[in-house]
Computed example of a mutant assay.
Amino acid sequence: MSVADKSQKKSGGLGETVSVIVQALLLALVIRTFLFQPFSIPSGSMRPTLLEGDYLFVTKWAYGYSRHSLPFSPNLFSGRIWGSAPERGDVVVFKFPPNPSLDYIKRVIGLPGDRVQMRDGQLFINGDAVPREKVGEINNPDITEMNRPVDVYRETLPNGVSYDTLDLTPNSIGDNTREFVVPAGHYFMMGDNRDNSTDSRFSVGFVPEENLVGRANIIFFSISEGASPLEIWKWPTAMRPTRIFSAVR
C-alpha cells in the first residue's frame, strides 16, 4: 500500500468518525427537543413524591412545543405549537417565570380561571375544600429531610387525582394565603412538600403556558446522600432501587 493510499484511508476513517459523531449529536438533539428530556431533582419541594437524587424523563410532546422546548430557549416564536393543556394534578417541569434560565418542577393545582386559596393548611379550589386525609407518618430522613416523624396527608383533586403531601410545620407561612385568581393562559403550581416549596403562593407566581417544558413521566434512576450517578462505588449503599423505573404520579 502506497503512502497516498494510507493517507486516503486515514482521512476517510476520520471523516466517517466525525460523521457518526455529528449524526449522534443531531439525533440526541431531536430526542431531547421533541421526545424526552432527562431532568434531575435539585430540591426537596416535591417530597414525598420526588426526592433529591431522582433522575426523570420528561415527556416533551405532552403539552406541545414552545421556544422553551429548545436548548437555551431561543426567541424564535411565541406561544405553543400543537399545544395541549395540562391536567390538574400533573407534575410539570417549567421555566421559572422571573428567570426562564431556571427549571422548576411542581404539581398543577390551578387551571386558568380557577380561584385557589390555602386556609389553615387545607387547599380550596373555587371555594370548595379539596379532600385532605391524614394517612400516617413518615419517619425516614431520606424522604422527609427531618430527623423526626412527619405527618402525611393525601389530597384528592376534583378530577380524582390523589397524591401525598408533607406537613412539616403546622400554621406555616404558606398554610394561609389570599385567594389567587388564575389568569387566562396561566397555571397555579404547588409543591407536595407544602411547608418547604417556593411555588405559585410565593415568588413563582402564575406560570404562563409558554413556560411549560413537559410532564414528568418516569424515574429512571435514584440515588441518595447527595451522591452522583457516576460514583458507582456508592451504588450499593446510596442507590434507591425501589424507585427506579417507577411512574411519577
Rank of each mutant, 00 (worst) to 15 (best):
D192A: 02
N193T: 02
R194H: 07
D195W: 03
D195Y: 06
N196F: 00
N196Y: 04
N196I: 01
S197M: 04
T198Y: 03
T198S: 03
S200T: 05
R201W: 04
R201A: 08
R201S: 09
F202I: 11
F202K: 03
F202G: 11
V204G: 02
G205T: 02
F206G: 12
F206V: 05
P208R: 10
E209C: 10
E209R: 14
E210V: 10
E210P: 12
N211L: 08
L212K: 08
L212N: 01
G214Y: 06
R215D: 13
R215G: 05
R215T: 09
A216W: 05
I218E: 11
I218T: 14
I218D: 10
I219V: 13
F220G: 06
F221L: 13
F221K: 12
F221G: 05
S222P: 01
S222R: 01
S222C: 09
S224C: 09
E225Y: 13
A227F: 09
S228H: 13
S228P: 06
S228C: 07
P229W: 07
L230K: 11
E231H: 04
W233I: 08
K234I: 01
K234Y: 09
K234H: 12
W235P: 12
P236L: 12
A238T: 05
A238C: 14
R240S: 07
R243G: 10
R243I: 03
